[in-house]
């Protein structure tokens, strides 16, 4: 066994997995990764199940040190500068830290959450099948709270497998797609149009419970109190002040505000990775389209292993890029694929 020690970490970083299913009827919310595709990509890089528990790193920087042996890691999600002892590490690749080596990750450059998967996965005591941190309910393993410097994971010793990169499908661009409802009839046509036609920004006060949306006030038809009913990931509720809140993975399981629309499954991770202050729009789609996209999204996750490539060529390119850095060229490349193109004119 080896250990992975959290040398430094910012707030909003915690162990997350595919979520805690089956206890919403008792008021226990699902939690789990904010961006499931990136969690699955990080896990796939090191041969884990797609929704195995990994470290969800919030927007700030973090560093991790291998102790008592080597540790193999997979990194995916919001892009950031990463290096081991001054050597750059590309996003969407696996890397093996030798005993004593430290992986340093900078601030997220676009997006919010980066996933660090550990070969053999994080070990702990599952509750309702999940290690995901739900700080309010005191759940999560090995730490039932956000991570802090000094925390350490007992992990499998690195297998020595050759390093891989993963060629992810190009992320969808454009508006965040929603299905209207379940309470769209609590709003008149003008206010539904206002919701769909306006430019929105995510407030800096957002968290894993909900993303507060900044834009025009949406008015209700019959007031803002409904009898509480169930919520889902991506429910967009409109409280009394008219400022919508998109409910995320740590949401309450029930809520008493009308829900004008619901983000489609395929776009929840994209919404989660929209930085505070970035302008975006919503777009209403049909049930048929939303379910078709949900099936494609599930298929994209199932087929991630087919997207693994040897990272040898990238390693060479990283060396070239290091030279470029030394020579004073600005390097803005974000992922392994782009770097490769850059290095092969």
């Amino acid at each position: 066994m080896s250990r992975l020690v959290v040398a430094s970490i910012g707030p909003a970083s915690s162990v997350q997995d595919g979520g805690r299913l089956g206890a919403q009827r008792y008021g226990l919310t699902v939690s789990g990764a904010m961006d499931r595709l990136s969690l699955a990509a990080a896990n796939t890089l090191v041969g884990n199940e797609p929704f195995a528990a990994a470290i969800e790193i919030g927007p700030f920087g973090a560093s991790f040190t291998a102790r008592e042996g080597a540790v193999r890691l997979g990194i995916a999600g919001a892009p950031r500068n990463a290096d081991v002892a001054g050597h750059p590490v590309a996003m969407d690749t696996s890397i093996t830290l030798k005993d004593g080596e430290t992986l340093t990750l900078g601030f997220a450059r676009g997006g919010a959450f980066t996933y660090l998967a550990i070969e053999g996965a994080i070990k702990g005591e599952p509750v309702f099948g999940s290690l995901a941190v739900n700080a309010r309910a005191g759940l999560g393993s090995p730490y039932p709270r956000p991570l802090q410097a000094g925390d350490a994971f007992t992990v499998d010793a690195a297998s020595g497998a050759s390093e891989l990169r993963i060629e992810l499908p190009k992320p969808a661009a454009g508006p965040i797609r929603v299905l209207l409802g379940p309470q769209d009839d609590e709003f008149d046509e003008a206010n539904k149009a206002l919701f769909l036609d306006s430019e929105w920004k995510i407030s800096a006060t957002s968290d894993r419970m909900g993303y507060r949306l900044e834009g025009p006030a949406i008015k209700h038809l019959h007031g803002h109190n409904i009898v509480s009913d169930g919520t889902v990931n991506g429910s967009i509720q409109v409280p009394g002040n008219g400022a919508p809140i998109a409910l995320m993975m740590d949401r309450g399981t029930s809520g008493g505000y009308p829900k004008i629309a619901t983000v489609i499954t395929a776009d929840i991770g994209r919404l989660a990775q929209t930085s505070a202050g970035t302008a975006f729009h919503f777009k209403a789609v049909s049930m048929a389209e939303a379910q078709d996209e949900a099936r494609k999204f599930a298929q994209a996750i199932r087929s991630l292993p087919d997207r693994l490539r040897s990272s040898d060529t990238v390693a060479l390119n990283i060396a070239a890029l290091s030279d470029a850095n030394v020579a004073g060229y600005a390097v803005s490349a974000v992922d392994a694929g782009t770097w490769q193109v850059t290095a092969e004119p």
């Binding site: 299905l179 209207l180 409802g181 379940p182 309470q183 409904i226 009898v227 009913d229 169930g230 919520t231 889902v232 990931n233 991506g234 429910s235 829900k259 619901t262 983000v263 489609i264 499954t265 049930m287 939303a290 379910q291 996209e293 949900a294």
Partner: peptide
């Protein structure tokens, strides 16, 4: 009442 693409609210009363 559709609650997104993966849930449905079966509403008996308001």
């Amino acid at each position: 009442l559709p609650s997104g693409d993966s849930a449905v609210t079966v509403e008996f009363s308001r």
